[in-house]
Amino acid sequence: MRARTTAYLLGAVLVFYLVGCIWRGILALQTAFTDHSLTAGLLGVAVLAFGVIGAWFLWREIQFGLATERLAIALDDDESPGGGLRYDEIDALPRSPGGRVDKSAADELFAKRKAETEASPEDWRCWYRLAAAYYAAKDSSRARAAMRHAVKLAGPKDAKV
């Protein structure tokens, strides 16, 4: 729950910043038109563009988070054989005194998940579990890519993106 609260807080700060960027961009454009200043106009367009692009990225990340949460709930409710989140496997991995997962054990779990995914490449559940294994192996960029693929495979019935 602490991670969610932090995400909400950082999201609110980012929204405040983006609104400020968009507002300052509009003011700079207004100044450009009233004072006939090319510099203010260019600055206004740039600041406005940064604000809009930042808002778009924030919206996409929120949609991604909601979609992965819906998939996690659907997978957690899955009672079929071979279904479920299987977080107990990740929780059972040996850890260092600082709490980090042992790299060799995470790589072993990753190899198992990769084989499972290669056997069923159209099953979003396999891709979701592969993403969790990537994350345990500290490969966050591939974990996000695998999770995005899981969301894409799940389609609108399980997760909307």
Rank of each mutant, 00 (worst) to 15 (best):
E108P: 02
R60L: 06
V101W: 01
P97W: 01
Y17F: 15
L18E: 00
T68E: 13
H149E: 14
L18A: 00
G44I: 02
D77Q: 14
F57S: 04
A132K: 07
E69N: 11
A146S: 12
L43K: 09
G99P: 01
F16V: 12
A131C: 11
V13Y: 01
I26D: 00
A119F: 10
G83H: 03
Q63T: 05
L42G: 11
A136V: 06
Y135G: 07
A143Q: 05
V47S: 07
H36R: 15
A143S: 14
Y134C: 09
T68L: 08
E89S: 09
L14F: 01
A72V: 05
G54F: 02
I26H: 04
E108R: 13
A131P: 04
G25Q: 01
R125G: 14
Y134V: 10
L27T: 15
V47Y: 00
F110H: 15
E69P: 02
A159H: 03
W124Y: 08
E89C: 08
R113W: 10
V161Q: 06
L66R: 09
E122I: 06
D76K: 15
G98M: 11
L85M: 14
L85N: 13
D102Q: 08
G20L: 07
D35F: 06
V161H: 04
I26G: 04
S120P: 07
R129L: 14
A154W: 00
I26Y: 03
L48M: 10
G41I: 03
L93D: 00
L38V: 15
L130H: 05
R95E: 09
F57Y: 05
P81W: 07
A111H: 05
E69H: 10
S141P: 05
W59Y: 06
E122R: 10
R86Q: 11
P94N: 04
T34S: 13
R2C: 10
E122V: 09
E69F: 10
D35N: 12
L58S: 02
D123H: 05
G44R: 00
F110W: 12
A137E: 12
A3M: 08
L14R: 03
A150W: 02
T34G: 03
R113C: 10
I26V: 14
A145H: 11
K103L: 11
L153Y: 04
T5M: 12
A55W: 00
T34R: 15
S141C: 03
S96D: 03
G99Q: 05
R95D: 07
G41V: 04
E116L: 10
K114S: 11
L18P: 00
A137M: 12
L85C: 11
G98W: 06
P97K: 04
R2G: 10
A132E: 08
A143P: 05
L42E: 02
R4H: 10
V19I: 12
A92S: 06
A3C: 07
P156Y: 03
L85R: 14
L93G: 00
E118S: 09
T6I: 14
V47Q: 04
K112D: 09
Q63W: 04
A136K: 02
R100M: 07
I26M: 02
K138G: 08
D77K: 11
I53T: 05
R100W: 02
W23Y: 13
D76L: 13
T6K: 13
E108T: 15
L85E: 15
S80E: 09
A143F: 03
M1G: 13
T68A: 14
A145P: 03
L130S: 08
A28F: 08
E89D: 13
G99E: 01
L130M: 05
L43C: 04
